[in-house]
Design a protein around this nucleic acid. Structure first.
Lengths: 248, 248
DNA sequence: CGTGTTTTTGCGTTTTATTGCAATAATATA
DNA sequence: TATATTATTGCAATAAAACGCAAAAACACG
């Protein structure tokens, strides 16, 4: 088996199970421990996984809300700052939840005057610090995982709304498959948010590019802006630029 | 299980419940006490938690504990603990906001099974840490001062609800005048909350007793329980006891 | 083809990390 | 204070990693 094939195999295992054990890989790939260690080291050098004693862990696994140490915080700050340029006085904005959106709020200029609808209590609390922003929290069932409201009630309320701009994070974006998600409820929610806004900006770190999950939220054409921590003309973004998404 | 995974697990527990017991972790992770102690030590060295005799505490919790920004915190903890006795499995509870209510949530037993409607995003986030509690956040305009949702939309939603118990704080209570408030919006909100619940418990520190403000929410007879930090038979509470309010 | 170079891989050895145990010390709790 | 619980320390067994080396394979190039 070729080295590249081993690497691919290991990354598939990582993406599937969020972890691999050195000992397991030795058996599965029938090579020596040294070889596996070297493989893991190389993949870690490329930033594709976390090497730990006994094996390796997925990088994106550490995306927990409570976690005081936000994953890839630097990138998220860059993204957040770019996103603030989209906001102008008088705008009606709709936002989702997530650490990137929360960071976006923290980066907003103090005196901005706008109306914000949000499904995230944490975002609402943060927005409340801005005296010229009117905050409307969209209520409903509260998701323990994603820390946003969801469900039929939320969707009903969104149906009555037409915002100028929707800001949302995503767990995956792909130039051909568009926005995709794993959970049906979140999928429905995002569809409703898209429908409730004239334009949509997707905020995501480059790690989430070129990934497609089970459920499709919308084709790539429905996205007005894609904001990552990369430079506008970075080669990784070519596929999206070709689909006429505005890259910020 | 890899060491790093244990560390992640411990940090999740810490962020969820603000504390962990060494003994619990031994059982949950099926490793020796020594290993857990070493894990806690390492995490403490990284500054991610406070190691204490018997386990570890969340850093943020510890710092907010020291934080004297919460006025009369000791009293509020006493009140909060008393209030938890009113909650039984299967109950539908409606809560307001405020530091006392938030403290009440933190004092709830971990495995309680209930449905909570709330107008406070902070309460919702705190409730989300309990896996057996269903949380519904009532949405609407978000008040920068009182950090709760309010306004017509909230009242409409409350009108459709009938909870077993409503828990609310108050800025004033008086044996003759009942519950009173200063702001019309809050007044309307509280009226709606009362109407949406079979019983109502008012949580307030003793210094808010015997005060009447501009706007009346309800007569004293509409209150089922009055919870203060004082003893049940304290003389300050005589006036309320005479009106057949249950004093806890 | 042949020869020198680089890459890849596995083996033996040394070094380090992890874990549990036992004895002792410190701390909480009644 | 007495008792039970929890911490600390040193130690030993085991597992994993790192290192140097050498065989084998792949590659480069005249």
């Amino acid at each position: 088996m070729l080295k590249k094939e081993r690497h691919d195999f290991i990354m598939r295992q990582i993406n599937l199970h969020n972890r691999v054990l050195t000992s397991d890989l030795v058996q599965l790939l029938t090579v020596s421990e040294d070889t596996i260690r070297r493989d893991l080291q190389e993949l870690a050098d490329e930033g594709l996984l976390f090497k730990v004693h006994g094996g390796a862990l997925s990088k994106s696994y550490h995306s927990s809300f409570d976690d005081s140490t936000v994953y890839a915080r630097d990138s998220k700050i860059v993204i957040a700052k770019k996103a603030t340029n989209l906001i102008t006085d008088g705008m009606v904005v709709l936002t989702g939840g997530g650490t990137t959106i929360l960071e976006f709020v923290k980066q907003l200029p103090k005196n901005i005057e706008a109306t914000f609808f949000t499904i995230s209590p944490l975002v609402a609390v943060e927005l409340a610090k801005y005296s010229n922003i009117e905050v409307i929290l969209i209520g409903g069932l509260f998701s323990k995982n994603s820390q946003v409201t969801y469900g039929g009630q939320v969707i009903t309320q969104l149906a009555e709304l037409k915002a100028d701009l929707c800001l949302m994070g995503t767990s995956a974006i792909h130039p051909e498959e568009g926005l995709t998600d794993t959970y049906w409820e979140i999928n429905q929610l995002k569809k409703a948010m898209l429908a409730a806004s004239k334009k949509t900006a997707v905020l995501c770190i480059s790690e989430k590019l070129d990934i497609a999950l089970r459920l499709r939220v919308c084709p790539i054409g429905s996205i007005s802006y894609l904001i990552t921590e990369l430079d506008q003309d970075h080669e990784s973004l070519t596929g999206y630029r070709d689909k006429e998404v505005n890259i910020l």
